[in-house]
């Protein structure tokens, strides 16, 4: 046992705030006067991970851009629950694009700002685009890949809740294997979503060699804010993929949203890392490793893996996916 001098802060950076930390190390979210870019009164479900993740990310981007930020938003839960006409929850300039073209709309805004700057605009205005996993990994993929390839000056944020939740929980290419959705049923021995399909977009973004790619979850705010802050230090195309658990679509009680995100990270099934110019530069290590079963069991979308009989084969395959992430992204000290 070693003595740890004064640097110990009770909850360290695990909690949202910490009165014992120096002010510059505290989160944007812990401030009395935070931006609240996504205001109260929105119509997201109880315990919505996406509403939480969106406020975390946009507030952090607002902080980095000194409040001069424009957002383009794909169709999806986030757009639907935040802007039923004539109300809006957004407290920044915000435009709703089509489902599939938000990356292109953001590219256009960035181009317009470039022209304005050339014509004498002196304020430094930044652009973000955001959408769910459906609008990002499926429908908007072409526009997004183009935005990456041209290295347009946009931070694209994908809030990944693993499906089309707004329209009734249909499968997307970000839905995990074996998950039950409306379009991948688990009836009569069917497994749910198939293994080996879909895609993990952060790795595709990485392959574009853009300045910054990162993943985060709503369970670790300090990590998430640091990634947004880092992303905003770059110009060019940047991509942030945030895991936002969905109580309705995943089938867990509304107070367990953050717990689910934490279990996803601690089991290794969702790797949390950062990459710059195509290379992984940092991984958020697993603190208290749990078997992937601990993450799956509380979710109704995986209930068919546990009853009426335990599907050991499927569980083993999912565990292998987690183990592969742990090896690949070096998520445990012994894998370093």
């Amino acid at each position: 046992m070693h003595e740890q001098p004064i640097k110990f802060y009770q909850t360290g950076t695990f909690t949202v705030g910490n009165r014992l930390l120096p002010p510059e190390q505290r989160t944007v979210q812990s401030r009395i006067k935070r931006y609240n870019s996504l205001n109260s009164g929105h119509r997201a479900c109880q315990g919505c991970g996406e509403a939480l993740g969106a406020r975390y990310c946009v507030d952090a981007a607002m902080e980095a851009a000194n409040g001069r930020l424009i957002a383009a938003n794909a169709t999806g839960c986030l757009e639907v629950f935040s802007t039923p006409y004539p109300e809006t929850s957004w407290q920044l300039p915000w435009i709703h694009s089509l489902f599939g073209n938000t990356a292109a709309v953001a590219t256009g805004i960035a181009a317009a700002l470039k022209v304005k700057r050339a014509k004498g605009e002196r304020r430094h205005i930044r652009v973000i685009a955001q959408g769910g996993d459906g609008g990002t990994t499926d429908i908007g993929f072409a526009c997004l890949s183009g935005m990456f390839e041209r290295n347009d000056d946009v931070l694209y944020i994908c809030y990944d809740n693993g499906g089309y939740m707004n329209t009734g929980v249909q499968r997307s290419s970000a839905t995990p294997p074996a998950a039950r959705t409306a379009t991948t049923p688990s009836l009569e021995g069917a497994l749910g979503n198939a293994f080996g399909q879909g895609k993990f977009l952060p790795e595709i973004a990485l392959a574009h060699g853009i300045p910054f790619v990162a993943t985060a979850t709503v369970a670790d705010l300090h990590d998430l804010e640091a990634k947004v802050r880092r992303a905003m230090e770059f110009h060019g195309a940047r991509y942030l993929h945030v895991l936002v658990p969905c109580p309705l679509g995943w089938g867990f009680p509304s107070h367990e949203t953050i717990k689910m995100a934490r279990l996803a990270k601690e089991s290794g099934i969702f790797p949390v890392f950062a990459a710059e110019s195509g290379e992984v530069v940092a991984s958020a290590p697993i603190r208290r490793k749990v078997p992937v079963e601990d993450y799956l069991r509380p979710q109704k979308r995986f209930a068919h893996l546990f009853s009426p009989t335990l599907n050991l084969a499927a569980l083993a395959r999912l565990q292998e996916l987690a183990d592969r992430n742990i090896r690949k992204y070096r998520l445990l000290p012994e894998t370093l």
């Binding site: 009770q10 909850t11 909690t15 949202v16 705030g17 910490n18 009165r19 989160t27 979210q29 812990s30 009395i32 609240n36 996504l38 205001n39 109260s40 929105h42 997201a44 315990g47 919505c48 991970g49 509403a51 939480l52 406020r55 705010l221 949203t257 953050i258």
Partner: peptide
């Protein structure tokens, strides 16, 4: 309560009001 700001931070509806140190 030891003012860790967790409730203030994790509310998806900004329904927690922080009153200060």
């Amino acid at each position: 309560c030891f003012e860790c700001d967790n409730c203030y931070g994790v509310c998806p509806d900004n329904a927690v009001i922080k009153l200060g140190p």
